[in-house]
Design a protein around this nucleic acid. Sequence first.
DNA 1: CGCGATCTTGAACACGGTCAACTGACGTGG
DNA 2: CCACGTCAGTTGACCGTGTTCAAGATCGCG
Lengths: 240, 240
Amino acid sequence: MKKRGRQGSVTSATAQVACAACGLKPFCTASPPGSANAPCAPRRRLRAGEVLYAQGEPAAALYAVRAGFFKSCVSAASGEPRVVAFHLMGDVLGLDALGGAMHRSTAVALGDGEVCRLALTEAERLMSDHAALAAGLRARMGAQLADAGERMVALCAMPASERVAAHLLEVSRRWAERGYSPSEFGLCMSRKDTGSYLGLTLESVSRTLSQFAASGWIALAGRSVKILDRAALEAQVAGE
Amino acid sequence: MKKRGRQGSVTSATAQVACAACGLKPFCTASPPGSANAPCAPRRRLRAGEVLYAQGEPAAALYAVRAGFFKSCVSAASGEPRVVAFHLMGDVLGLDALGGAMHRSTAVALGDGEVCRLALTEAERLMSDHAALAAGLRARMGAQLADAGERMVALCAMPASERVAAHLLEVSRRWAERGYSPSEFGLCMSRKDTGSYLGLTLESVSRTLSQFAASGWIALAGRSVKILDRAALEAQVAGE
DNA sequence: CGCGATCTTGAACACGGTCAACTGACGTGG
DNA sequence: CCACGTCAGTTGACCGTGTTCAAGATCGCG
């Protein structure tokens, strides 16, 4: 569970860019009011499969992904846990706990990864001092809220092929935002997780991906994907 | 489109309790720093079907529902608009626009209604003065974020009967929270809207409701529902 | 009274889930 | 070193659920 061969090229060597686009950067630089160049707060390394926080746990901090790939799950009463989001470096985890006292989802590392931790007490203190920080976090939450709404639409009432195509393009976009190739990247997640996220079974995901490959839209080798015909995927999302 | 007969009994005579449980109340009472009992900011009455704000419009305010019933829709590229949320009085609309400059959903009145308006500039000003207001709004957004995640799970991968049962119980709970009967209430929305919200066709919704009625779980007359066997519905949600 | 919107009900079909067999990669232990 | 178990992924056949298409029912309103 330590070597990941082909996929390694994508998830390694990522640490140095993380801070530039990090969601918690404003907090980080404002943190010690005197020394502006102090590094980010305590970091934590996680092995593949390790949980960062679990649903129901008291919430004590926000986390920014420095390296690696994470998923957020919620387990409904009586039922398999479902994946509700994936997180790449720069993303902020734990926002859904801001209101209540507990985490309402479980965050798990999909590969070896590292996060920066910002204690909630510290976050609250900083925000009451610097209104701009509070506004920034609100903006991030608002965007996440809007995204969630749009994802509901996208995922709940689209045929399997459109969901998978949409997911491929979303992952592509998010890698591109971070400076990686938009056409050749690693999915970093199992077919099972993908299915859970998209509301499909792993068989349907596998079948659909194979079919895309057979049509020449993509080339796939395990979890690494190469987009050959982006226009076809976009047409698929729009419903042919 | 002005009279709604049977349903009127539920949606009328609601104004007087709205302020007590209103999501914007803290802003409202903090608004004029001197006169604490000043009423809520400008109000706006809407007729059934009227849009409060539309997707893509520049966002200028938050709104609290004073009376009536609203829906939030997002229209995906090339596709019917989909309902992503329903709002009863006390709920806050427009939070998804806090980050960006535009509304990312469309809010429509399902019956005649009234909202209180809080300009974003005013909201920002109040929050930078009163950190507690900012924290309160963050809490509300965090909760909404967590709810969205859980709803994704609930709605995307449950059979039709479970979705409809869950929806009935949710509407019941929300009426009850506001002091109305949890067992006899109005749905206030068309079958089409319900289906859009649940990711089903209106036929499936209608069929499922009829089946619940035939089983004796509920009695239904158009859009008004009487819950006869709550335990059966709850069992349905849990998957029998 | 008849028109339109909303809702109900029925029948046939297709999509995706379930079950099952098979493959290949990886790690362990005989 | 190879046999073995495990785990992720692929592929096939069957079947149930919900969609689609279509007809009819009900209600409000001109």
